[in-house]
Design a protein around this nucleic acid. Structure first.
Ligand code: MN
Ligand code: MN
Ligand code: ZN
Ligand code: ZN
Lengths: 124, 124
DNA sequence: ATAATAATAGGAATGATTACTATTTATTTT
DNA sequence: AAAATAAATAGTAATCATTCCTATTATTAT
């Protein structure tokens, strides 16, 4: 894998935020320093970076978002503002149970915990 | 909500399968008895049925699938054949913990357990 | 049956993502 | 260093799922 200017920038943008950005947001950011970068290049690089293990893809409803944090973790999703908040919640204990009950071999668990984040709490 | 022929059929199709079908599959099935039904009608009715609480929408990667089973449950997703298998796994115990740690109010937990289903087991 | 209104078919529009291609950029070979 | 090889790019067209639009039709209430 070559390290083009564009690829470095896409990677850097994803690595610099905790917002789990969309391809379009990465595109907008990238244009600030590479004005004629194309959206296709952003998508191609996001995919390549995922394949090489640099980033992960998260499907939020029907749109893809990207995450620099590749270790297993889950997300709180605020239905009010759409924010995704990282949460580490490892419970490998379900794996053997699922294996036994369903003869299903577990690779990973993807969990979205949906609710309302603290930004919207009404203070009394 | 009126009960058009089309709406009844869409509902019936979703209720008759455990395959968590896509809109397109429902459309194909519906055409068998209502040849000139339109895809827009299928989508409109799936949405309406969800709003009325008859069915649920599941996002599988970036495509929507529909589920007649509206009680909270989760899914095993086979990365080999794409099947979604229902699994009841309720652990409300995480709710208070998340509330405390993140001041995040949990509505529901959406979990995809990804792995390989028994259809692909190599028998020795 | 009439009037009021909800739903439909069919097609256009949208939004996200991928595919295509001629050109540019980087790496390897002479 | 020049030529050959390979990878990546910009720009654009195409695809796919989904939603929107509108004139017409079906359902329901009076
Ligand atoms: Mn994350
Ligand atoms: Mn289900
Ligand atoms: Zn929020
Ligand atoms: Zn399978």
């Amino acid at each position: 894998m070559r390290f083009s200017h564009q690829r470095q920038k896409v990677r850097e943008i994803v690595y610099k935020t905790n917002s789990h950005p969309t391809a379009d947001w990465v595109f907008t950011e990238a244009k600030k320093s590479i004005p004629n970068i194309s959206l296709g290049t952003v998508y191609r690089n996001l995919k390549q970076l995922e394949k090489s293990g640099y980033i992960k893809t998260i499907y939020d409803g029907n749109i893809a978002r990207y995450d620099w944090k590749t270790e297993p973790h889950n997300h709180l999703k605020c239905k009010n503002c759409g924010d995704l908040i990282d949460i580490v919640f490892l419970d490998e204990s379900i794996h053997p149970k699922i294996k036994k009950d369903f003869k299903f071999n577990v690779d990973k668990v993807e969990m979205f915990i949906i609710g309302t984040c603290k930004k919207h709490a009404k203070h009394s």
